[in-house]
Structures are given as structure tokens and as C-alpha cells.
């Protein structure tokens, strides 16, 4: 029997069930799952239709990190901390925008918690509203495309760097296109004591406007173009990076998604495309992606 699903209500082709299952498998089900509000909570914890095979608690948007910290301290007080890993599953809205305060507090106190952020680059649960994880130029319902604005202005927040800046022992980014890599990262995180932050890129079929069968391909392209570098930090030092044999142009990644289709027609679209390519080049230089 699987520890998560089957029978959850995620869209066909949704990315994050792969990540959740891979994380639960990596920890052998020795998990107390804390889940912030978001898509994952909606699809997996309907009344009487719970799909979690592990102890599970749902918190509100902003306090999943604080709830996890509380559980960790309670386990320590009861001298039962060896029984389970406290794992937070939170979306990018709960991590980047609303919950960053409590997350920062958790990292500051260095609670022994694995924080997994499934990053689908907008508030997809309520219907594609922009978050700070939304990349530049993406059309969402709160950043619609018009005469003066080609989608979201401003770039995606680099949350992994913010986590590293807290001085936590482990921070990494992963992608559902490479589940074995993500599995290894969760296993590595479980061996370390202290706060761990893993950000996993999960495509959203409805918000991004892609076909269900393209999920893995899109996730792979995000990594191969350099827009989503897979990095691993231990004690503030960059220890591992997924090298790319031949970095692709960002247009290959953008043209198959509906949220970016206006960039190829809009008068200001060209500037955004150039800026996105510049961000990819910057990532490549910063992390040494080109092999």
C-alpha cells in the first residue's frame, strides 16, 4: 500500500503527488506531515477521503513552519524524537509570500524540521494568482496581459538563497522530472540535524496551460534551460549542481506554455524574453551549470 494515494483529487498530470510520494518513500513513512493550505491540502484531505498514510496535520497558510516547530519541540519534550521526521509540505504561496515570517523564525531557531516547498509558481489552488514565485512575464489572473503590461513584472524570488542566508545546515532545489535526485536529497536532509529546506519544481497543468502529458517534459526543460538550477547547499557551501551538457534556449521552455504565449506577440515581449534569457545565463554563471 502506498503512503500517499491513490484516490486523491489532483488534476490528471499534476506534478506534486510525485514529489510527495517520493519524499514519503525516501523517509520510509517515518513522517509527521504538516501541510499548509494549498492545492495539496485540498486534493488530499477531503472529509472521509483522506489519502495520507502517515500522521497528518493541516495548518493555515502562514503558520505551517510554526506548527512543525511546535511538533518537533513536543517530540523532544516527550523524548520521542527518534520516532518520526517532522516534514512540512507547503506550496510556493505559503512559503514565498504568506508563511515566510514563521519559516524564517523556524530557520532562526534551527528546529529539526524538513521543509519541502512544492513550487508551482502561483496560487494555483484558487485559480492562478501571482505569487513571488511566479517567473517574469507569466500571465496570471492578477497580472493579466494588456497594452502596458506583458504579464508579471519583476523576477522570481530566490528562496533557496534566502534559506541559505539563515545559516541552516541544508538547502536544495529539486524537480519532479528527476525523482531519484529528489529522493536522494530528502534522504540526505533526514541525516542532518537542524532546519532543512528543499524546493521542488512541480508543473501545474491548468495554471500553466499545458497538456497533462507534457508535465515531465516541461519540468525537464525548466532545468535544461537554466531557469531552474538544481543546486544543493550544505552549511552554506554549494556542494552539488546538476550540470547541463548543452543548455537550451529559454524560448523552448516558454513556447509550450499558455501563460507565456503572449511574449511572442506582445510589443514588450521581446524585452521580457531577453531578460529571462539573461536570468538563465546569470544562473549558469553563478552555479557553473555549463559542463
Amino acid at each position: 500500500m502506498s503512503l500517499f494515494g491513490p484516490g486523491h483529487g489532483a488534476c490528471p498530470g499534476c506534478g506534486f503527488p510525485i514529489a510527495v510520494r517520493e519524499a514519503l518513500d525516501a523517509l520510509d513513512g517515518k513522517v509527521i506531515a504538516v501541510n499548509a493550505t494549498g492545492c495539496l491540502e485540498i486534493v488530499s484531505s477531503m472529509y472521509g477521503r483522506n489519502t495520507w498514510g502517515v500522521p497528518y496535520i493541516h495548518s493555515i497558510f502562514e503558520n505551517s513552519a510554526a506548527v512543525a516547530a511546535g511538533i518537533e519541540v513536543a517530540l523532544k519534550a516527550l523524548k520521542r524524537e527518534n520516532e518520526a521526521h517532522v516534514v512540512v509540505f507547503a506550496g510556493d504561496g505559503a512559503t514565498f509570500d504568506i508563511g515566510i515570517g514563521t519559516l524564517s523564525g523556524m530557520m532562526d531557531r534551527n528546529h529539526n524540521v524538513i521543509y519541502i516547498c512544492y513550487d508551482n509558481e502561483a496560487y494555483q489552488n484558487t485559480g492562478n494568482q501571482q505569487s513571488m514565485a511566479t517567473p517574469m512575464g507569466a500571465a496570471t489572473t492578477t497580472t493579466p496581459v494588456g497594452k502596458n503590461m506583458p504579464g508579471k513584472m519583476g523576477r522570481k524570488k530566490d528562496m533557496v538563497e534566502i534559506a541559505v542566508a539563515h545559516g541552516i545546515p541544508y538547502a536544495a532545489s529539486a524537480s519532479i522530472a528527476y525523482p531519484k535526485d529528489f529522493n536522494r536529497k530528502v534522504k540526505r536532509a533526514s541525516e542532518i540535524k537542524g532546519s532543512k529546506y528543499i524546493q521542488v519544481h512541480c508543473p501545474c497543468v491548468t495554471g500553466w496551460g499545458i497538456d497533462g502529458k507534457l508535465t515531465v517534459e516541461v519540468a525537464k526543460l525548466a532545468v535544461e534551460t537554466g531557469l531552474y538550477p538544481l543546486v544543493e547547499y550544505e552549511n552554506g557551501k554549494l556542494v552539488r549542481v546538476r550540470k547541463l551538457k548543452k543548455r537550451k534556449s529559454v524560448e523552448e521552455y516558454l513556447k509550450i506554455q499558455r501563460r507565456f504565449r503572449h511574449l511572442f506577440k506582445h510589443p514588450m515581449g521581446k524585452d521580457v524574453l531577453e531578460e529571462l534569457q539573461r536570468i538563465a545565463d546569470e544562473n549558469a554563471r553563478k552555479y557553473g551549470l555549463d559542463a
Binding site: G5, G7, H8, G9, G48, R49, N50, T51, W52, P55
Partner: peptide, 14 residues
Amino acid sequence: IGASSPAMTSEMKT
């Protein structure tokens, strides 16, 4: 309690 009873997932045939 809901969690840790995976049998309930069979309620929803997707």
C-alpha cells in the same frame, strides 16, 4: 482521525 487509515482512499474512484 482520518490520517493513517489508507483504506478510506478507496472511497473515491478517480
